[in-house]
Computed example of a mutant assay.
Amino acid sequence: MDESFLHNCLFFTANRLGRAITKMAEEEFAMTGLTPMYGYLIRLVIGTPGIAQKDLSEKLSVTPSTLTRFIDKLENRQLVKREVQGKTVLVYPTDKGKELEQSIRRASKNLHDRYQAILGVDASDRLTVLLETTSEQLEKK
């Protein structure tokens, strides 16, 4: 059976890469008690207290409804809080959320160091840029 289509398909190879890097990220972020996405969300909120929920959704490339569910869970854990100003929902870190900043940064750095050790610094940097620009092109359609 000819399986070459699997190795020549962006959909298949991108998903394979996604699964591999997600597994690594989950292993590195385990020490924080958060998923990688929650960690990056909290990191953005700490870096920009009062960030609009809409802006978070765009920066994390998730739908507004998905982001709402993420924030619901983090709010239930008392790591972030929301404030409504007119039609805008602003997200702030709590003191408990701020306490996680260093472990989130450490997990992120560990992940970065881990894949760079496997791929090499230049290759991982080039791949990151290529994936970013490719994602932007495909999103524009």
Rank of each mutant, 00 (worst) to 15 (best):
L119I: 01
T94M: 03
D55F: 06
T13Q: 13
T63M: 06
E99N: 06
L67F: 05
V129C: 00
F70W: 04
I46W: 07
I42V: 15
G86K: 05
F29R: 00
M31E: 15
T66Q: 11
A20F: 15
N8R: 14
S61V: 07
P49Q: 07
L17T: 01
L127S: 06
I118T: 04
D55A: 14
T13F: 01
L44G: 00
T94R: 01
L56P: 05
L17R: 11
I71G: 01
Y115M: 09
F12Q: 08
K140G: 10
D122R: 11
H7K: 12
G18Q: 07
D72G: 02
V62W: 10
E58H: 10
P36I: 01
L111S: 01
T134S: 06
N110H: 08
R126H: 08
A25W: 00
L6C: 09
R43W: 06
K141G: 07
V91T: 08
M1F: 15
R106L: 13
R82P: 06
R69F: 03
L34I: 05
V45E: 02
I51V: 12
S103V: 11
N110Q: 12
Q78S: 14
E101H: 04
A14Y: 04
N8Q: 12
Q53F: 05
K98P: 02
G47D: 13
M1T: 15
F5H: 14
G120L: 04
E101A: 08
K73N: 11
M37P: 00
R82M: 09
F11C: 04
R16C: 05
D2A: 13
E3W: 14
L44K: 08
R16S: 10
V80P: 00
A117I: 01
R114D: 08
G47M: 03
T88D: 04
A123I: 05
N8E: 13
T66I: 08
L10T: 04
K141T: 04
E75W: 05
E3K: 14
N76F: 12
R82L: 10
D72H: 12
L6I: 14
R77K: 15
I42L: 15
K81H: 14
A20W: 12
T94N: 03
L111T: 00
D125C: 02
T128Y: 07
V91R: 01
V45L: 04
K23L: 13
A25T: 00
L56G: 06
A20Y: 15
S4L: 14
L34P: 02
Q137T: 08
F11W: 08
Q137W: 07
N110W: 01
Y40F: 13
L41S: 08
L67C: 06
A123N: 09
T32K: 04
L44Y: 13
K59V: 05
L56K: 03
L119D: 00
S135F: 05
N15Y: 10
L41Y: 03
L79M: 14
G97V: 05
F70D: 10
K141Q: 09
L17W: 12
E58D: 13
G50E: 04
L100G: 02
P64D: 07
F11T: 03
F70H: 11
R114S: 13
R77S: 11
E132I: 03
K59H: 10
R82A: 06
K23A: 15
I51N: 04
L131F: 10
L119A: 08
D72Q: 12
Y40P: 00
S4H: 10
Q85V: 13
E83I: 15
P93N: 11
K81C: 14
